[in-house]
């Protein structure tokens, strides 16, 4: 199997990165979380057996409330690390795990779901997670995202598929600080990062 050293994330040659972060407007921190594992899971939320199988396999239930996500430790016997599960639609979820453990997770899920109608697709490498934080993170996002991200409206634990300027994104509030996780398709990462670098200036 390939080594991590052979991997190159989507923003590896993006100008302006210093380490894992990039220059952005004052009061805005922009970082990248590279090489995370992504699994797309689809199945029938009305099927109790499906839900229970997932719960048993992952040690956490699938979020069934629209536009929410859960985050918990992965059961020890599979791997060390955390797993976030984002609700994408009534029958679709995105599983995001720390680097390198998506294959073990997928293996366990496939094993447990054998014979049940579902789809499990490895999307590792297809997406990039940008982390936006700081006092003016909301201001920067408000320039290109039409959602209401006010702390009383978009709370920690919520996520949404929306657009940032002309890129489709999945946005989630992971901390009240605030910290926003912005998951963007790989080929749009450069555009989104450039956009976030320029937004929020002069507020």
């Amino acid at each position: 199997m390939s080594e991590v050293s052979q991997k190159r994330h989507a923003l590896a040659s993006f100008p302006g990165w210093q380490g894992a972060g990039a220059q952005a407007a004052p009061g805005v921190q922009l970082e990248i979380s590279p090489y995370l594992g992504y699994l797309n899971l689809r199945g029938d939320p009305g099927d109790e057996r499906f839900l229970q199988t997932i719960h048993a396999a992952l040690g956490q239930p699938l979020p069934l409330v629209a536009n929410t996500f859960t985050k918990a430790l992965i059961p020890q016997e599979i791997a060390q690390g955390h797993l976030s599960i984002f609700w994408l639609g009534p029958d679709e979820w995105l599983l995001v795990a720390e680097p390198g453990i998506e294959k073990a997770l997928a293996g366990r899920l496939r094993e447990n779901l054998a014979g049940q109608c579902h789809s499990l697709t490895d999307l590792t490498g297809a997406q990039v997670l940008l982390r936006l934080s700081g006092d003016h993170a909301r201001d920067a996002l408000a320039e290109g995202c039409t959602l209401d991200l006010h702390p009383k409206v978009f709370k920690t634990g919520q996520c949404a598929q929306t657009t940032l300027a002309k890129a489709s994104i999945l946005i989630a509030l992971t901390d009240d600080l605030p910290v926003f996780d912005v998951i963007v398709r790989r080929s749009f990462a450069g555009y989104a990062a450039l956009w976030l670098q320029h937004s929020g200036a002069d507020l």
Partner: peptide, 19 residues
């Protein structure tokens, strides 16, 4: 037009082999 000018006029999608 806002910020949608110059480099940000339209997303430029690049393949993983672009570099």
């Amino acid at each position: 037009a806002g910020m949608d000018v110059g480099q940000l006029y339209e997303p430029v999608r690049k393949t993983p082999l672009h570099d």
